[in-house]
Every structure is written in structure tokens, then in C-alpha cells.
């Protein structure tokens, strides 16, 4: 599926920039889809996640202690889970680049009976989308197609095409 990396200006601030992947077919980002899928059942938690992300970008930066690490396995070391606590219902996947850049993916309801994400089809799908994006981003950064700005708050490239991806989304 054809996707584009976009900057979520409503969530970005001086401490961090927040991005997501815009799915061309749906004309929506992965994060917007996450909000739409979960607002009716978990509105209060959704709003807390939104405040959390905004405060990360405006006040605190993306501190590693705010994220659950090692959600992506080998080759996807930048993949974290946000807001993934035992007393919370939702899990949101994201990619972190230092404390200054976050790429928000999707996520979903996290059943407490599930021990491995692969046991939950929805979480597995969302997690694997970000694994694909992570591998492709790492490749483009490694090859110099995508770089960081001097303050590490943004990505830059030679062309906007460098922010387009073909990601397998079931």
C-alpha cells in the first residue's frame, strides 16, 4: 500500500516532532485510524494519550522511560510501545529517533490475557506495519537519502518522494 510520511503539526513542539504514516488509499494517517477505532470505547484514555504525546513534544522530549522498549525484535530496535501499562486498555506503537522524533503508528486494545503480541491479530498487524517502516527508514537513513536537520527535530531529503513508502498492510 502506498504511504507517505507526514508531520503532525498539532502534536509537534520544540522538544520533539511527531510524524505518522498517511495511507493514500484511506487519506488518513495510521494514528488517525487508531483514534477513530478507539475513541468511542476508550475516549478518556485516547485523550490522555493525545495529551501525553503533546507534552512529550512541548515539555519533556521523548524520554526512553516513557516508552516500552523492544517491541520490534531484531532489525526494528526503534520500535516502542507507548502507554502500555497494566491499568490501561490501549497500546500504541511508535518509532523513536532519539528524544526528538517520534513516528506514531497504530495500535489497539490490549487484552490482559494476551502474553505475546503475535497472539492478537490486530496488535500484530499494527506492530508489523511499523517493523516494515522501521526497516525502510533505517535503510534510507543509512544510504543518506533521508537525513536529520541540524537540531535533529526533523527529517530532510532531496525530494518529497524520499518520504513515500510501499508498506504491506493487510
Amino acid at each position: 500500500m502506498h504511504c507517505k510520511l507526514v508531520k503532525l503539526h498539532q502534536y509537534s513542539g520544540e522538544k520533539a516532532s511527531v510524524y505518522s504514516l498517511n495511507i493514500e488509499k484511506y487519506q488518513k494517517t495510521l494514528f488517525d485510524i487508531f483514534l477513530e477505532e478507539n475513541t468511542s470505547s476508550f475516549k478518556s484514555e485516547i485523550k490522555e494519550i493525545m495529551r501525553y504525546i503533546t507534552l512529550i513534544s512541548t515539555k519533556t522530549g521523548a524520554r526512553t522511560s516513557y516508552f516500552k522498549e523492544q517491541e520490534g525484535g531484531r532489525g526494528s530496535e526503534n520500535l516502542f510501545a507507548l502507554f502500555d501499562e497494566t491499568d490501561r486498555n490501549l497500546r500504541l506503537y511508535c518509532l523513536n529517533y532519539g528524544t526528538e522524533i517520534i513516528i506514531l503508528g497504530g495500535g489497539g486494545y490490549k487484552d490482559s490475557s494476551i502474553s505475546a503480541l503475535q497472539d492478537d491479530p490486530k496488535l500484530k498487524k499494527e506492530n508489523y506495519i511499523l517493523r516494515s517502516l522501521c526497516r525502510e527508514m533505517d535503510k534510507r537513513i543509512r544510504e543518506g537519502n533521508i537525513e536529520y536537520t541540524a537540531d535533529y527535530l526533523d527529517f530532510v531529503a532531496d525530494s518529497e518522494d524520499d518520504f513515500e513508502f510501499e508498506i504491506e498492510i493487510e
Binding site: 507526514v6 503532525l8 498539532q10 488517525d32
Partner: peptide, 11 residues
């Protein structure tokens, strides 16, 4: 070139 900015209506 930087990624385009996106406005989320639901947000």
C-alpha cells in the same frame, strides 16, 4: 525537502 504537514480533524 521535508515531509508535508498533516492536519488531523479528529484530533
Amino acid at each position: 525537502s521535508k515531509p508535508k504537514e498533516y492536519t488531523s480533524k479528529i484530533s
